[in-house]
Every structure is written in C-alpha cells, then in structure tokens.
Design a protein around this nucleic acid. Sequence first.
RNA 1: GCGCGUUUAGCUCAGUUGGUAGAGCACUCGCUUGACGUGCGAGUGGUCAGCGGUUCAAGUCCGUUAACGCGCACCA
Length: 874
Amino acid sequence: MYKELAKQYEPQIVEDRTYKTWIDGGYFKAPCDPDKKTYTIVIPPPNITGQLHMGHALDNTLQDILIRYKRMQGFDTLWLPGTDHASIATEVKIVEKMREEGITKDDLGREGFLVRAWDWKKQYGGRIVEQLKKLGSSCDWSRERFTMDEGCNKAVKEVFVRLYEKGLIYRGNRIINWCPECRTTISDAEVEYEDQAGHFWHLRYPFKDGSGYIELATTRPETMLGDVAVAVNPKDERYADKVGKMLVLPLIGREIPVVADEYVEMDFGTGVVKITPAHDPNDFEVGARHDLPIINCMTDDAKITEDYPKYAGMDRFAARKAIVKDLEEGGYLIKTEDYTHNVGTCYRCHTTIEPRVSLQWFVSMKPLAEPAIEAVRDGTIRFIPDRFSKNYFHWMENIRDWCISRQLWWGHRIPAWYCADCGEITVSKGTPDVCCKCGSKNIEQDPDTLDTWFSSALWPFSTLGWPDNTEDLRHYFPTNTLVTGYDIITFWVSRMIFSSIENMGKAPFDTVLIHGLVRDAQGRKMSKSLGNGIDPLEIIATYGADALRFTLATGNSPGNDMRFSNEKVEASRNFANKLWNAARFVLMNLDENEPAPHIPANLALEDKWILSIFNKTVRDVTEALDRFELGIAVQKLYDFIWDILCDWYIELAKIRLNADDEEAKKTVRAVLVYVMSNTLKLLHPFMPFITEEIWLTLPHEGETIMLSDWCKYSEDLNFAAEEEQMNKIMAAIKGVRNRRAEMNVAPSKKAELFIATADADTFAVGAAFFKRLASASDVQIAPDFAIDGAVSVVTDACTIYIPMRELVDFEAERKRLNKELDATEKQLAQIDAKLSNAGFLAKAPEAVVEQQKQNREKLAEKAANIRAELEKLN
RNA sequence: GCGCGUUUAGCUCAGUUGGUAGAGCACUCGCUUGACGUGCGAGUGGUCAGCGGUUCAAGUCCGUUAACGCGCACCA
C-alpha cells in the first residue's frame, strides 16, 4: 500500500532527514573516475566570519542547480567547498572581541594572537558551512578546504617563490593605500570611492624674495606639512617667470621650489598645485620626476608626527581644523569654498584612505595580465552575460601593480627573510637558517602577511592538491563553471585567471556565470546598517529550502539584480505544495504492485498529448540549463507542472481512473507515474528535497533521485497530431467555460452540449472531457444542429450549442457574436495583408509563411462559423 | 569624463536565433469540483520610455534622447 501523504507539504520534517540520507549515502562525494567526463565547480569560499546571507543563498543555489543537473547527466561531478580566512575581516573581529576583554594584540604578541585566532576559526569557521547544508548544497564535504590550511599555505609559498624568482614579485618603496583604522595597506581594488562634501581652501604661499605670493587651492590643507614644492603647468604663461623661484611654506618656514609639470591642469583652480609626495599618489609621481624629497607627516594611525610639535598627535581631521585656523590667523587663507569630491575609503571599514609611502611587496601585473586578457578574448573563458568581459578587459588593461603585503597577523606570512648583516632578502618555501647571500644566521622573517586574495587566487588548483601532482588535480582541473557576483570579478575572478595561467599553464575554468545582487522588496541593497537584510535561514525555517531556492532561481537572469520579497517565497511555497498534492493524487490511485516508471501501450489521446509536451519540456529545460538560463528553465517547469500536468492532465486522468476499465486504469496510472517521476527529475536541481521525498514514495529504481538519469528528448514521444487534436478540444472547453462564467452559471448546473463540427472524430474522443471539465451533462456531435434558443460558442474547429433558453438574451448574443466577428476579421485582415505582401512571401522563411497560412485558415473557419451562427439568429 | 545596465499590465519581473505580447502578486466575478482554498474556473489591465533607422516583419537589431541605477577614472 502506498504511503499516505500529509495534506500539506511540510519541509521542516523532510529536509534535515533527507540531507542526512544524502550524506550517509555518500552521494555528494566525487568518485574521481578516470573514465568519466568531469564537471567541476569550486565554491567561492565564504569568509569564516560570515553568516549565510541572501547573496550566499543565491550563489550557492545556482551552483547546486548546475552540479545536481550535471551529476544526473552522468558527469563525474565535483563541487568543492571551503572557506576563506578573510584576513582583515577576521582580524578586525577578533581584535574587537579582545577589546571587549581589555586585551590588545600587543598584549598577546604574535604567537598568542594566532592561537586565539585559530581558536576563533575552530569555533565559528564551521558555522557558515552548516548553513550551506541547510540550503541543500550538494558539496563534496570530504574535500572541504580552507584558504589557510596546510595545502593552501604550501601553494601560496610555492607561487610566491616562483613569482619572486621570475622577478614578478618585488619589494619597493611606493605610495600605497593605507587604512588608518585597519592599520594596514589595502590594494587598489579594495578602495571604494565615495562623494563627500568638503571644502576647497585657497591659500597664498609667499615667495622667499618677498616678491608677493602664489595662490593655490587644496582640499587637504593638513598635508601642507609635507609639502616639498608647488607645481604649475610648463605651458602656463601666467607663471612662466615663477618657475624655479623659492617659496616659504607658511607655518613651517620650509623653503620649497616652484616646479613645472604637465600633470597640472591650467584651467582648474588657480593652476597651481602644492606637491606632497608622501600623501598623494599624483604628487608622488611629480616628486619622483623632479627628484623632490618625500616628507611623511603622519603616523600609521593618521596622526601628525612628532616632527611638527604644534600639531603632533592630532588626528588628521583635527589637524586640518587647527592648520586652517592658523593659516587664517597668519593671513595665508584667501577664501574657503564648498566642494564635493571623491574620497577613497576602505572597503572593509569605510575609513578614509590615507595614501602613504612605504616599503611593501608588489606583484608586477602587466606580464601576468596579458595572457589573462587573451584567455577571455579568444573565448577560452566565457563570461555570462558577455558584457562583463568588458569590465574585465577594462580592469586588466589598466591594471597597476598589486600591493600584496598586509600589516596583519592573521594570514599567510610572507616567506621572505631579511639579513641584518648584509641586507639581502632570502625568499624561500621552507624556513631558511641562514642568509642566502652571506650565510649569516642573523635573519628575520618579514612580519607581514599576504592579501587574502592572494590565496583565494589559487583556489581552483590549490584545493585540488597543487603544487603536488595529485589524482584530483589531474582529473578535475581545469574546473568548468565559476559562479559569482559581479562585485568580485576584479578581486577574485581576474586574479584566479592570471594565477592559474601563470602557474598551471591553463585557464582555471571555461565559464564564469555572473549573477547580480539580491535586493530587498524596495530595491535597496541589503545591509547591516539599514537593517533590511532578510535572513535566508529564517526563510528556510518558515517556507523551506526548496521554496527559497525556487524563489532565487525564478526570474533570475544572469548578471541582473533581483528583488526579494516574502510574497515571492509564498508563491514558491504554494508551488511546492501544488506539486505535493499532485503527487498525493497520483499515489492515492496507484496499485499495490505498481510497476516502475515506463511508457505503457495503448496510449489515449491525452496520454500522447502530455507525453509530447513533457518531451518538449525535457528539451527546453535541458537547453536552458546548458545556456545557463536557469530562470527560464525553472519557468518552463513551473508552467508544465501547474498548467499542463495539474490543471489539465490530472483532471483528464480522473475520467479513466473513476471508470471501470481496468486496462485503461493501468495505462493512465503508468502515464501518471512516468510523467510525475520524470518531471521530479527535471525539477530536482531546483527543489532537491521535495522531489526526493516524492520520488522515493513513487515506484522508482535506484536509491535516490539525485543519482537518477537525467531525461532525454525522444523523437518517439513527439505526437504532433495529438497535440493539435487536444488544442481543438481544449479551446472548445475553454470557450464553454468562458460562456458559462459570463452568464454566471454555477458549475453544479450541468447542461447538454451540442458540438457542430466537421471533425467529429476529434470531438468524439474528447466527449468525456466536456463532461468532466465543461460541466456537460451529455455531449452530442454532428456536422450541424438546429437548436432553438441556445447559447453558442464558436471556435475555428466547431460551434457548440448550450441550450439554456431561460438564460439566453438573443440581442446580447448577437452583439457578442458581432464583436467576436469584428475581432476575428481584424486579425484576418492583418494576416491577409502579410500574405498578399510580395516581400513577405519572397523573403520570409517557408515555415513562417506556412504558419501564417494555417493561422489564416483557422481564422477564416472561425469567421465563417460566427457568420453562420449570426445567420441563424436572424 | 569614459563605460555598462535598466525602462514591458497597478506592483515585481520573464520574454531563447526578429514572426499575432507572458507569469506571479494585486484586483473583479463565480465555485465545499473526491489531490490541493498554499486551491479551481473565468475576467479586467500593455501606443513594450520617446524619436529616428534597418527589415517583408522590431519588445527583440542599429542610432539617438530622457529618467533611474552601477562600475572605472578623476582637477590639487
């Protein structure tokens, strides 16, 4: 006896249990079978500090859909999971927690801090992994990795040493982006620019010789402490005679020259720029060109240094106020304008970045970027949608060297040792005992760590075992699809591409599937500060993981943002419930020894019809998935399940199920089982839990739907004639329902139907359908009827009379028919215009012309039928 | 400044290589229909942002304008 299902689907009691059976069954584990074609995805590793948010939910839903689809198609499928150590984010969190306990990093020291950090990782690092499981993610957890595990560390050191030896990693004194809050460098990619209201202070710098002054303007007066020159454009005649003269820096008294440099725009401000090489990237370059000194006036937490006693220890913004006040009092301030300018901020803490000159490690990007650009240009790697390749090119073609050293403790420590005796740098994979040049034992490792993204950049191969030549690496690399949001193309995707080409000689993946942001119902970005974030785990608890996944997949087109609302999840939940109840219907009709899914003999018209449509759905869904149009795929399934299967086929199936013909019952049960169980397969990647639950309850072969075979399109199931026949019947049924609804006739009030048609065979087969679906008490079919006082329904295939004398308003009938005739003739005229257009006949594809001709036939039939009917009414 | 995206029903969005505009939600009317009221049936609602072009044919391709949004680069 088949299991009685609850009236409503309850995800809460199904999901955890089902996930456990998948884990216990080892179904997620990639077999590493050398004879099979592989399909590999590496997860964008979430930060260990993170909690699952909607962005993760979307990203991982898309990956799981692809992975489950490919797994069912028979690929040796690996979805490799893991987490990112997220150096800044994690260190900031740990330091915050320490602050609450009144401890500083210095109190603990490096070793002590790292012990704490690893403890923290142990405690919280697994949290997001557990949350991914709630979503149904079919990752191979046996291969789970961490960007700072031993293997990743080995890969990081290997790459660092290789690039250093090739001269592609170097150490240099350059101007970098400094975050005074995080007290570390950050890369160009990590700077976020935002418009800020500020001021434009016009200052006068007097000439040393007393010959007046030069006027300039600045948005950052506090940096004047580090001014070493004033620059004008060499073509600027206004200042031609001033170039080379000396100025006296106000408040400080330092003597600085006027230099000429192309960098200065003549028509901006006064055409004069003060030059502060230590605190501005452009000034740094000007300074280098003119051999100017670099005077740093700030500490690493952006306070004025001891060199300027009056301002020493003041924060840069306090110093700004004080200096402006002093300039004003000294008569150096000409005027102050309001001014909005773009200020660089730290992407983590949004503190204003302080450009700063310091000794850091860099990756030389130009040589690495070139082949990485080429890989996308020649199609080795494809972005979906394609437009993101433009962003990628733009970024890569204008790339500057990548600052990779961070003044943090949580991360991969830079494998470089400095010799206190000879100053040589020893870069080594192992831990060296002596200086590589002089042999001195007096060496010390660089205290800095590497940018988090340095290790993430190696993720597609470090996770497979590189630099060791492992079986996994040989088998699963290169990976196939990378799924991620457009916001980290520059941070991560581009760096994986060049790292992989450089170290593996191959692109890391062939396709980058880009998705957008999940926004709130009003279209705002979900953020902590707005408090408008929706917790995916709460959605899962309320509506189920399948409903969440379905919502995220539905209407999601690559690269576009989407809005999330509870209404949408409710619609998805309702869909799950609809499916559940369709399954209940199938199950309650099954025989005790129901055979496994198969296509029975003696198919009825409606059986062939649904098999034909199902077959097309298989094709459409498969093609959509292959094109990464997951939103379209899921829409096709929704329509098939709700409209075709539930609204029509199940209703039609009831006719035979409620009758006494045992053979017919057997057939319809088999079709139901076949269509239901195969539809579940198509839906499984999107809604894994409910499909498994139902599939296992139905007759099935195999232990899990996860490992069942994906459906294939079959020409044998293409029943075009039956589809056409069903279309005629369905149009007639809809017409009758429509008429009855217009007349407010209750479904319980049955009426006899007289179907006048030249196609008696078709309607004879469908006669029972009208009883079931169009409230017919009986159906008569003949070429023509002369019914007195009936309502009529006209289609292109028939005219149906509903004898409802008491309800008929002949005047209204005439009006309605005339209206319908007008509409039909209008359509007819449109088609005729086309068909009489020589250009159309000559140039349109034959199939299109044929289609139009067929449509014309149908419309003409319908018009004729309406005219005949009007004739009768007169 | 350069580049990109969006603009389709009241709302949120789909719309495959051009071939008679779709869904969900909302709304209106009707329904204890032996799977499901998280449901069933029927319906209202659209000069596909504007203009121009290519084409036999444009929501779809090209150009242009506008509004909104995003990215990159910035003039101190």
